[in-house]
Amino acid sequence: MENSEHKIVSFKTYGLVLLALIVLTLFSVYITQLDFGNLGIVVALSIAGLKSVLVFSIFMHLLYDKKMYALMVVGVLVVMTIVLIITFLDYGY
């Protein structure tokens, strides 16, 4: 079927995303020196989550491709989240 509508993403966008990824990485190294208590893992995972959103949507073109592919990725993440939550039902005590 037709493959023609490939969106060309500008070099500048990729450069900005790269920059954002580097900054976020440095930031996640920096925050290891702060004490968030139990929230530490939440903060670290949020930064990692933000980075993967950037990679998925721009580097991997999910933003520009058919909505169904984005839906598939979200679906997979939902399954994984439920699996993690259920696993930790066993560890919350």
């Binding site: 259920i86 039902l89 066993d90 560890y91 919350g92 005590y93």
Partner: peptide, 8 residues
């Protein structure tokens, strides 16, 4: 396992 897990 925890009781919650068993039930779930």
């Amino acid at each position: 396992m925890s009781e919650t897990s068993l039930f779930a």
